[in-house]
């Protein structure tokens, strides 16, 4: 892993080929995530379900239930990977993570408030609270980070995010500690998971994620210019403020919807862009699509791992990622000078 730091990007042809390869890998992981689970089922059953002629036997039902889980994994993974890449690009902070905008904390707080104060108990309804909480808090952090001279600088956004995170976490904890009925309902939402997310819930949030994906991919060129520093970017005719706002909007759409589906999932948004950057070099127009495909590979792979490591139980993907992600991150930190972002 002692590869030299990339100063020049590989030729576009090779990067495009790599992207196609990655798409194939993602397709393979997707198939594995349908075929492998806590219950082992025959390949015939899997083919039946994929081919659309499930007989309704309980094996068929098990496989059919893995489909929304796969879609959830694809969307959440792509969303978090892209959001992480955009965040790191726009803040020029290698440790930026969707959590930095307070998005996870905002979503968690909104769900707790929905259950505890408004008596909302249907997942289909409180995902809207999650999404709204993520969006409002993300926007608020961005607004606080923009106050004062110099506009929304990376340092100010980071500080504002940390402060808002701390406040929301305290309030959420206070509500949960004093309201054990809410704690009981909210519990499943404290560990990120893509299990048991129903198709209609995933479908409901998919448009937001897809809109976020389009915005983020469009933002690639802008991020390249921002990476040169605000002054140079302005000198090149870039409107720095509106570029950041576009990136911020993409991030909020992506993480808000992803968090609403899966709950808080760490490491994906932090880790994947680093891996992508290692392959592609510094060009955001490549980092973004690589992140978008790499992240669901990591997420679905970890999810499959969580299904088979502790039979007959399953471990939530959020927990698996914490175990898988930490050593991965340490290897990356050892091998790469992060400040050279």
């Amino acid at each position: 892993m002692a590869a030299p730091e990339r100063t020049t990007a590989p030729p576009n042809g090779r990067l495009a080929f790599g992207l196609v390869t990655l798409a194939v890998v993602l397709a393979v992981v997707s198939v594995v995530s349908i075929a492998v689970g806590a219950r082992s089922v025959g390949l015939g059953v899997v083919l039946d379900v994929v081919g659309g002629n499930g007989s309704g036997s309980s094996d068929h039902q098990v496989v059919a239930a893995r489909l929304p889980r796969l879609f959830a994994g694809l969307l959440v993974g792509a969303g978090l990977g892209l959001a992480g890449a955009v965040m790191q690009g726009v803040t020029r902070n290698p440790l930026a993570d969707p959590g930095l905008f307070g998005v996870n904390a905002g979503a968690a707080f909104a769900v707790v408030a929905a259950i505890s104060w408004f008596g909302v108990d249907e997942p289909l309804r409180y995902v809207w609270f999650a999404f709204a909480g993520a969006a409002v808090v993300g926007a608020a952090v961005y607004a606080v980070g923009s106050m004062g001279g110099g506009g929304a600088t990376p340092v100010k956004i980071t500080l504002a995010g940390a402060a808002v995170n701390a406040v929301l976490l305290s309030v959420t904890t206070a509500v949960l500690l004093t309201d054990s009925a809410t704690f009981n309902q909210h519990r499943f939402w404290t560990v990120g998971s893509i299990a048991g997310r129903r198709g209609d819930l995933v479908a409901q949030l998919a448009p937001f994620l897809l809109a976020g994906v389009v915005l983020a991919l469009v933002a690639g060129r802008l991020l390249n210019v921002l990476a040169l520093g605000d002054d140079v970017a302005r000198g090149l005719g870039q409107r720095v403020g509106s570029a950041r706002a576009l990136a911020g909007a993409a991030t909020i759409l992506l993480c808000g919807a992803a968090t609403a589906i899966a709950g808080p999932i760490s490491f994906v948004g932090l880790l994947v862009p680093h891996v992508a950057r290692r392959i592609t070099g510094p060009d955001q127009r490549w980092i973004l699509p690589y992140s978008m495909l790499l992240a669901p590979v990591l997420l679905l792979g970890s999810d499959v791992l969580g299904r088979v490591v502790a039979p007959p139980g399953e471990i939530q993907v959020g927990v698996v990622l914490a175990f898988v992600g930490a050593p991965f991150l340490m290897v990356l930190l050892r091998n790469r000078k992060l400040r050279e972002l």
Binding site: G37, A38, R39, S58, V62, A65, N184, Q185, R187, F188, A195, G196, R307, A310, P311, P312, G313, E314
Partner: peptide
């Protein structure tokens, strides 16, 4: 597993097969 109360994944409804299943949906 060595557990008195075994953690079972939701795909393993086969482990719930019994002549009498006494069941609680906790938190839902």
């Amino acid at each position: 597993t060595g557990d008195t109360r075994v953690n079972v994944g939701t795909e393993r409804a086969d482990l719930l097969r019994a002549d009498l299943l006494v069941f609680l949906v906790n938190g839902g």
